[in-house]
Simulated scan of single mutants.
Amino acid sequence: MSDENTADQLRQELKDVEAELAELRRVGGDAQARRGQDTDTSEGYIEPEEIATELTGIAENEAIIDTLEQRRDRIQEKLNSLG
């Protein structure tokens, strides 16, 4: 496999990771914006379980983003080492 094929593959992988990061950040922003809001069926009280579930989802999303950012950095380093 030539360096150019490898570079093209790495560029595509980098593009895919960036797209995934953008989507996760968008979803995370939506979740943060909705955090603590009453649902349509709510009577003004938010169950602690609902809050815990929201916070867990937000934390999991942030962990995935961190992992993808590390992956993006490794891909970028590989690309840089190719020239």
Rank of each mutant, 00 (worst) to 15 (best):
17 V>Q: 00
32 Q>Y: 06
1 M>A: 10
5 N>G: 05
57 G>F: 00
60 E>F: 14
62 E>W: 03
14 L>H: 09
13 E>G: 03
29 G>A: 06
67 T>A: 15
52 A>G: 11
32 Q>M: 13
39 T>F: 05
67 T>D: 15
60 E>R: 08
76 Q>V: 00
46 I>Q: 06
80 N>R: 15
7 A>N: 00
34 R>N: 12
59 A>C: 09
57 G>C: 03
58 I>K: 05
64 I>W: 05
62 E>A: 14
65 I>A: 07
64 I>Y: 07
61 N>A: 05
25 R>V: 00
73 D>V: 08
21 L>A: 06
78 K>Y: 03
50 E>P: 07
76 Q>E: 12
30 D>R: 11
73 D>N: 13
2 S>D: 13
4 E>L: 15
57 G>S: 05
27 V>C: 03
82 L>A: 05
32 Q>N: 10
60 E>N: 11
65 I>V: 14
22 A>Y: 02
15 K>I: 05
49 E>N: 13
74 R>E: 14
72 R>L: 07
49 E>V: 07
65 I>N: 06
56 T>N: 10
9 Q>C: 06
36 G>R: 02
11 R>M: 07
4 E>D: 14
12 Q>N: 12
66 D>C: 06
83 G>K: 02
29 G>R: 06
44 G>E: 02
18 E>V: 07
27 V>L: 12
22 A>W: 02
38 D>K: 08
79 L>D: 07
32 Q>S: 10
82 L>V: 06
20 E>K: 05
74 R>L: 14
1 M>Q: 12
6 T>N: 09
19 A>H: 03
6 T>Y: 08
28 G>Q: 01
62 E>R: 13
30 D>P: 06
62 E>S: 10
54 E>W: 02
63 A>K: 08
20 E>C: 06
7 A>R: 01
28 G>Y: 00
80 N>F: 07
69 E>A: 08
24 L>E: 02
33 A>F: 08
45 Y>F: 15
42 S>D: 15
69 E>L: 10
37 Q>H: 11
14 L>E: 09
49 E>W: 09
23 E>T: 11
80 N>H: 13
73 D>L: 10
1 M>G: 14
4 E>K: 02
46 I>K: 12
82 L>F: 08
8 D>A: 15
13 E>I: 09
17 V>G: 00
37 Q>F: 03
24 L>C: 03
53 T>N: 14
26 R>M: 09
